[in-house]
């Protein structure tokens, strides 16, 4: 069983190992094991951007719980990222508390808000649900702007982190650990009996209801798990990534980007959203750099839009989803007699 699992996960494990080894020189240097000035690899921006990818990958994985495993399309998901980021930022900067208290506050706040938002909005279906989540996110956005004595208003809140977190190598490893823990936890959840109920709801809500499952309770539960994870990602953003909490995090913009990551990678695959997050974040770092070649790249989000439309029209299962179907059909072709 265990061996089989490891074999199925060999790609994930290989990538993880690679990611672990890459910044090793920096880690050794930071701990005085090798001379610090002898090391300038990997460059600091590699570490920064990778950390950013890890954090957004967590958001994308948490979104996949909703869209991929429960079948809900929310437009207010990044509200929870904002809640997490502000919780830790306010705890540290306004109340002078330890970041650890901030993490706890973030978990509690995002859980509470998920339950409230979820139980109010999940009574609505489809498009109506999409719109009410949009409304909640907008309310969050405006509140973050208006409660400026707490949130810093339009300027947002910059977080002064402890020294050991100001180190990009440490941030990198923390981010990687964070992603790995969340990824495997979420996979455990989706493969658990609870996860199977969620899948049943996604496939046919009425049947799940008829089988005696409290569909709304399960959905609120899924939204809470997903919201707390997004809240934690917000904490990570405010501590190891941008070290900043800003109101625009709550708007539909970031949610739409996360949705793109999930769809491009493959809805309901978990590895897909991680891959999608890496692609989209790295593109958004790389494309603006091409402005020297053509001013077209100043509008790099145009390419994200085209990827969006292209994926929906031609690759609806996403990269990982399509890859899996291809492998499956290839197998079927080989093993189907005649």
């Amino acid at each position: 069983m265990m061996l089989k699992r490891i074999k199925a996960d060999r790609w994930i494990i290989a990538v993880l190992l690679l990611l672990l080894l890459l910044p090793l020189p920096k880690l050794l240097a930071a701990n005085g094991l090798i001379a610090a000035d002898a090391v300038n690899w990997p460059p600091i921006h590699y570490l920064k951007r990778s950390t950013d990818v890890f954090v957004w990958a967590v958001v994308a994985v948490s979104y996949d719980i909703l869209i991929g495993f429960t079948g809900i399309v929310s437009f207010g998901h990044s509200l929870f990222v904002a809640v997490g980021a502000y919780s830790v930022a306010i705890a540290v900067m306004k109340l002078g508390l330890s970041p650890v208290v901030g993490v706890l506050a973030a978990v509690i706040a995002s859980a509470l808000i998920s339950v409230v938002v979820g139980s109010l909005s999940l009574r609505l279906k489809g498009h109506y649900f999409a719109m009410i989540t949009l409304a909640f996110a907008e309310v969050g956005h405006v509140l973050a702007l208006k409660l400026s004595q707490w949130t810093g208003g339009e300027d947002g809140l910059s977080v002064r982190v402890p020294l050991w977190l100001a180190n990009r190598t440490n941030d990198y490893y923390l981010g990687l650990l964070f992603l790995a823990v969340i990824f495997f936890t979420v996979r455990r959840i989706t493969e658990s009996p609870t996860g199977r109920v969620l899948a049943a709801i996604r496939e046919n809500e009425h049947r799940a209801q008829a089988l005696g499952y409290d569909v709304t309770a399960y959905k609120v539960g899924a939204m809470t798990i997903s919201g707390v994870i997004a809240g934690l990602a917000g904490v990570a953003m405010a501590t190891i990534d941008t070290q900043f909490a800003i109101a625009s995090l709550a708007t539909s913009g970031p949610t739409i980007e996360v949705l793109l990551m999930t769809v491009v990678g493959g809805v309901g695959t978990l590895t897909g959203p991680v891959l999608g997050a890496a692609m989209i974040r790295l593109l958004s770092f790389a494309l603006p750099g091409l402005q020297d070649i053509s001013p077209l790249f100043a509008r790099w989000q145009l390419f994200l839009g085209l990827i969006y439309v292209g994926t929906v029209m031609f690759l609806p299962d996403g990269i990982v989803g399509s890859y899996r179907t291809r492998v499956k059909t290839a197998f079927q072709r080989i093993f189907t007699p005649g």
């Binding site: 869209i67 077209l296 509008r299 989000q301 145009l302 994200l304 839009g305 994926t311």
Partner: peptide, 27 residues
């Protein structure tokens, strides 16, 4: 038109169109 049978993808498509149209305008 090709997506009428897949409502979630219709939402995604129009989201993508936001980016395409807005960025083209800015361009």
């Amino acid at each position: 038109r090709p997506l009428y049978k897949r409502p979630i993808f219709l939402i995604l498509l129009t989201l993508g169109l936001i980016l395409v149209l807005d960025e083209t305008v800015k361009l």
